[in-house]
Amino acid sequence: MTKKGILTVISGFSGAGKGTIVRELVDRYGYAVSISATTRDPRAGEQDGVHYFFKTKEEFEQMIADGALIEYASYVDNYYGTPKDYVMQKLEQGIDVILEIEMQGALKVKERFPEVSLIFITPPDAKVLRERLEGRGTETQDVIEKRLARAAQECAYMDQYDYIVINDDLNVCVEQIHGLIQALHWKCVNQQGQIAKMKGEFANKA
C-alpha cells in the first residue's frame, strides 16, 4: 500500500518571495505544486497550464458552481482558486503537495482539512517588503499600494498559521521549510495507519 502524501499550504505577503521559495522546493526535493486557476492577466513569460490556469470570470464562476475547487478567494480584484482533482491524485500516489495560495484560501483549506499545516512566509520587515514589490517592476504604483494595504490587513491573521518563516536568506528559508514539511510526516495525524496497525496487532495477540 502506497503511503499517502501530505498536503501543506504556503502563504505569505505579496512580495515575500513565496513563489521563488516554492520553485526551489520543487527543483531540489521534487514536491508537487498545485497549479492555481486565476482570472488575472498573465505576466510576461507566464504560460497557461504551467504557471496558472488563466480563466475568464465566467469560466471561474462555473468552476465554483461545479465544486471543482478545493478553495477560492478574491484578491486585488481577481479570483484565485485550487483545482481539486490534481491535488487528490498526487496525494493518493504518495507525493507531497504544496499549495501556494493566499491567506483567505489557506484558512478555508484549514477549515475543510484540519490536519493540513499552514506555513506563512514574511520578509524581515515592512520596508523590505516595499522594496521587493517595487523591485519587481511588474506592477503600477497603485497596485503596489493595494498590495501593501492588503499586507497590513493580513497581519491580523498571521497567528492562525502553524509556522511563521522569515525569508531573509533564500537558501536558509528553503531548507527551513523543507525540514518543516518532512517533520510533518511524523505528526500523529499523519501516522494513523501505523497507529491502527500497532493496535490491531496487539489486539490479535490478546
Rank of each mutant, 00 (worst) to 15 (best):
V109H: 07
G105P: 03
N78W: 01
G67I: 00
R132C: 09
W186D: 06
E100I: 00
E201I: 10
R28V: 00
T2E: 09
R23C: 09
Y86E: 12
I64T: 06
V128A: 13
Y29C: 01
A37P: 11
V9M: 05
D142C: 00
I166M: 06
P83M: 08
F54N: 09
V33H: 12
A68D: 15
E46K: 10
G17D: 07
G67V: 05
G135I: 12
Y79T: 05
D27I: 07
G137S: 10
S117V: 05
G67E: 03
V189P: 00
S11V: 01
G30L: 03
E102A: 08
S117C: 06
Y86A: 12
Y86D: 15
M88N: 14
L180G: 01
Q153I: 10
D48M: 08
G5F: 06
A151E: 12
V143L: 12
C173P: 05
A152C: 04
L118D: 00
T82N: 06
K3Y: 07
G15T: 14
F13D: 04
A37G: 15
P83N: 05
I70M: 15
G67Y: 08
E92I: 05
L25H: 01
H178C: 08
A151Y: 08
D142A: 13
M63P: 01
A149I: 01
P123D: 04
E175N: 14
N190S: 00
C188F: 14
G94P: 05
Y161E: 06
V97Y: 11
H51E: 15
K4Q: 08
E58M: 09
Y79H: 11
S36I: 12
D162S: 03
A152K: 13
Y75S: 14
K55G: 01
K108I: 00
D41W: 04
Y86P: 01
K84C: 03
L148K: 00
Q104R: 03
R132D: 09
D169P: 07
R112D: 11
S74H: 06
R28Q: 09
H185T: 05
C173E: 05
I195E: 02
L107G: 00
R130N: 08
F13V: 08
